[in-house]
């Protein structure tokens, strides 16, 4: 985990709205991601957390332009991705690892064909031997041995399949990888193996990650900085330790306090900040601050306008009207 300050990727006012039909001729925008801005530094891991449906996956996919952004800009290595050509170049350097190692790999393809596919699509190698050497090198990176190359994806365990997915993501020598819940589907005993591998690959290949996960212990472990989303908005962003030790946003505070700590004495003494109610539907998001319906600090101003996402101390961003009262 490096602490370099140069920015690899910058997102400005990113929006992704989905049209949801509400009747025969009417539709309504579902604001899955609504005006989100942040930067990712070269070589760092930015963790992205938040409740199910808050827009984490959509942020990842929209950055990669797997969904066309409804609004906003994405800059990669200082340059806006504007033209088709920019996008093509960006796609070689930015890629994604998916959550489910069972459904994201074609069971009828061999390991070498799965990993080699991006090389074939971008016509990287003319020479068969060079192509195969590269595939074997990639397999080596993720701890698979060459005997696995001719076998089929369905013959592998979840942890091994996730390795295959990662090797594939590495094929084109990317600089940036969106990791969307890459260990959630794996057994606890296997998760640590895969997390360590992400760590080692980052050191070895200088990778930058956007790491989406709902297990906050894992996110804290792997991330340099952590961003918290709620109902399509980013509500807080800071260094991982800062988010854990000094969360400022009321949602982050309850999120951190709700993490089940695997230590009985601490767990019994833990004061959880219980949230009442359920997360609102993104189709009927509250006015003003999206969290106000569950927030114990909410006041009139919270219903009136969306609080600005601003830097309250060096590198610590929060969107909340009542920070002064929360203290």
């Amino acid at each position: 985990m490096k602490q370099e300050t140069d920015v690899l990727l910058r997102v400005e006012h990113l929006k992704e709205y989905f049209d949801i039909s509400t009747g025969f001729f009417s539709s309504k925008p579902l604001k899955a991601v609504d005006d989100v801005s942040f930067e990712i530094r070269r070589g760092e891991t930015l963790g992205l957390v938040g409740e199910s449906g808050c827009g984490k996956t959509t942020v990842g996919r929209t950055i990669l332009h797997l969904y066309k952004p409804t609004g906003g800009k994405v800059f990669f290595e200082g340059k806006e991705i504007a033209s088709k050509e920019d996008l093509l170049n960006f796609r070689k350097k930015a890629t994604m690892v998916f959550q489910d190692p069972y459904s994201s790999l074609n069971p009828r393809m061999t390991v070498s064909d799965i990993i080699g596919e991006p090389l074939d699509i971008h016509k990287v190698y003319q020479d068969k031997k060079e192509r195969m050497d590269r595939i074997l090198e990639l397999m080596g990176h993720v701890g698979l041995n060459s005997e696995h190359a001719a076998r089929y994806a369905h013959e592998f365990s979840g942890g091994q399949r996730q390795r295959i997915g990662i090797a594939r993501a590495l094929a084109l020598n990317p600089a940036f990888i969106v990791c969307d819940e890459p260990v959630s589907a794996l057994d606890v005993s296997i998760q640590a193996q895969v997390i360590n591998m992400f760590d080692e690959l980052q050191d070895k290949l200088g990778l930058t990650y956007l790491f989406i996960a709902h297990d906050l212990l894992i996110v804290k472990h792997i991330s340099d900085r952590i961003a918290v989303m709620y109902l399509g908005k980013m509500v807080e962003l800071a260094d991982a330790d800062e988010i854990y030790n000094h969360p400022l946003h009321p949602y982050t505070q309850s999120l951190i306090s709700a993490v089940p700590v695997p230590d009985p004495k601490i767990a019994r003494a833990n004061q959880r900040i219980a949230l009442s109610g359920d997360i609102p539907s993104p189709l009927n998001a509250p006015s003003g601050c999206p969290f106000r319906t569950r927030c114990r600090y909410a006041s009139e101003v919270c219903a009136e306008s969306m609080p600005e996402f601003k830097e309250v101390s060096a590198g610590h961003f929060v969107a909340c009207h009542r920070l002064a009262e929360i203290g």
Binding site: M1, A192, N196, I218, H221, P262
Partner: peptide, 15 residues
């Protein structure tokens, strides 16, 4: 194997 304060900045110890 679970991350904790002690594993901060270190490798996890997987099974």
């Amino acid at each position: 194997s679970i991350p904790s304060a002690e594993t901060d900045g270190k490798k996890l110890q997987p099974i």
